[in-house]
Design a protein around this nucleic acid. Structure first.
Lengths: 108, 108
DNA sequence: CTCCTTGCTATGTTTTTCGTAGCACCCAAC
DNA sequence: GTTGGGTGCTACGAAAAACATAGCAAGGAG
């Protein structure tokens, strides 16, 4: 595991400024991160449930991403499965209008 | 180049539904895509200008991503450089609140 | 005990990304 | 006309990330 988890205040891939937005763009530019957040918009999911929701993503990558996201305080593992933290849910809400936008995009 | 460009209505990585949002999540989950959109929030940038703005990303990947984004009608190359299309600008606007969110995230 | 589900790890392979070098084109200066 | 600068972009080998598959360890139910 050579990949570092991007944190606001630290240098990330392609930026040494430490600006939070850069850390965020780095984190979200990793495969499955956006999708995972998206799939957790509803009720909590188990590891395998999440894996299935993401179309059978390999467990190694899934686990890596879950680690990333847990370290970033965006999700947590509770008794009933993985779920977004309040912070994570806030982030997801920023994306909700994307569904509507994507529909418009589909027409173009 | 074995990578397919995700299009709404077609199957993408991890989803066969053809739902636009899935194509969007696939596209944006690729390295540098979010960053490129972000760096083009201001005036148009040349290929090399964009490359520099992204912290020296390698030209091969940059070009691949530019192809992806042009095929997706999110940006275009004009006389004064690469710039977002109206559609791309719309998408970027969905992300603008992210800066504020990222600041809050940095504190947590 | 057996059976099933849980989260997750280990392994080897394939795909993506990377870094460097350099091509082809255009234009202005000399 | 050739040198020097810019442009967009490609080629190639090396490194890193993502992949598929198998399986482990723990817990709960019957």
């Amino acid at each position: 595991m050579k990949q570092k988890i991007p944190k606001p205040g630290a240098a990330v891939r392609g930026s040494t400024t430490g600006k939070p937005i850069m850390a965020l763009l780095d984190l979200m530019g990793r495969r499955w991160v956006l999708r995972i957040l998206w799939e957790l918009r509803g009720p909590p999911l188990t590891f395998r449930g999440l894996q299935e929701a993401c179309g059978g993503v390999s467990p190694s990558v899934l686990n890596q991403r879950l680690t990333d996201l847990r370290d970033s305080a965006l999700l947590d593992l509770a008794d009933d499965g993985y779920a977004l933290t309040p912070l994570g849910r806030e982030l997801l809400e920023q994306f909700t209008p994307l569904t509507i936008w994507a529909e418009r995009w589909a027409k173009a």
